[in-house]
């Protein structure tokens, strides 16, 4: 596989702050890669260096064989960018804007196709200032697609969307991946990364704390399960089960859920206690993420 993006030892410091502190990334052509992390982790700084919007302080970066720091036109002709915050001339219609931008590229996408892919077919001839917030975000995507890019940067593409709009956006992004486009997306939603990405990297405090496929990340972290249940007032589970009160009930973390459940239910039946809302959950990507990023956050504080 050809690498679309190669990053070695990337660093970026602002006056007093080191936003990115030496990261490595390798993203293959045709891959959907998610960069995950809380606000301030350095995701946007990283992506904006790859897009050519920021100058790096150190490290090597190659995007489609070019150094984005040189801001070459040939590279910009092959990529599409959805920034976290952007604007367009709101007095123009969706079709006019996409047609205008398509004209900048040597091999553009048919504007009507780009507009349909972004899910704006119905709004194509409306002025942007008449669109809703979610629709405006789709204009960003249509504009990014106008040049028929090989590589697409999506910086928090669904932040601020309602759940159904997010679902729609996900289907759109999956469709684009199906067209063979390389996609680098940033998000702070676990489910989004899990649903869309072939591989992901979790960033916290300027470094990558974990990288791999979603399945690998969950597996590598542990095979731990969480058992939760409620008990009537005044009743406490036996201390050898190591249960923690949560305020509304109890929770036990374990590597052996089968044995634990046997002990717990045996104790409950023997004592005549009801285990209200008994639940066993495998650790999710979200737990892995929270564990990794909060550890970093605490070390920092």
């Amino acid at each position: 596989m050809v690498a679309a993006i190669e990053v070695r030892g990337l660093r970026k410091s602002y006056e007093s702050l080191e936003a990115v502190r030496g990261i490595d990334l390798s993203i293959a052509a045709g891959e959907v890669f998610a960069l995950l992390g809380p606000n301030g982790a350095g995701k946007t700084t990283t992506v904006e260096i790859l897009e050519g919007h920021r100058v790096r302080s150190g490290g090597d970066v190659t995007v489609l064989g070019h150094d984005p720091g040189r801001h070459e036109r040939e590279l910009r002709e092959r990529m599409g960018i959805v920034l976290q915050q952007t604007g367009v001339d709101e007095y123009l219609t969706v079709r006019e804007i996409v047609t205008m931008v398509a004209g900048y590229y040597p091999r553009p996408m048919d504007p009507a196709v780009a507009i349909d892919l972004a899910g704006l077919g119905e709004q194509a001839d409306r002025r942007v200032n008449k669109l809703s917030g979610g629709q405006k975000r789709r204009v960003d995507l249509a504009v990014a697609l106008a040049g028929d890019p090989e590589l697409l940067f999506l910086d928090e593409p669904t932040t601020g969307f309602d759940p159904s709009a997010r679902r729609q956006a996900w289907e759109t992004i999956r469709g684009l991946a199906g067209l063979g486009k390389t996609i680098l997306l940033t998000t702070h939603f676990m489910d989004e990364a899990q649903y869309l990405a072939n591989r992901l990297a979790i960033m916290a405090d300027g470094v990558i704390v974990a990288t791999g496929t979603p399945a690998e990340l969950i597996g590598a972290s542990s095979s731990r399960s969480t058992v939760t249940f409620g008990l009537s007032d005044g009743v406490e589970p036996p201390s050898e089960l190591d249960a923690r009160p949560t305020g509304v009930g109890w929770t036990i973390e374990t590597d052996q859920p089968t044995g634990l459940l046997h002990d717990l239910t045996g104790w409950a039946i023997a004592g005549g206690h009801a285990l209200e809302g008994l639940q066993v959950t495998r650790q999710s990507l979200e737990d892995v993420y929270l564990e990794l990023t909060s550890a970093e956050g605490e070390a920092d504080a």
Binding site: E51, G52, H53, R73, R76, E77, M79, I81, L83, Q85, T86, G87, V88, D89, V101, Y104, Y105, P106, V143, G147
Partner: peptide
């Protein structure tokens, strides 16, 4: 105004000189 609205930044990410 266009700079505040992010219009300039978007243009800079396209091949338009």
């Amino acid at each position: 105004m266009a700079r505040d609205n992010g219009i300039l930044k978007r243009v800079r990410g396209t091949p338009l000189p």
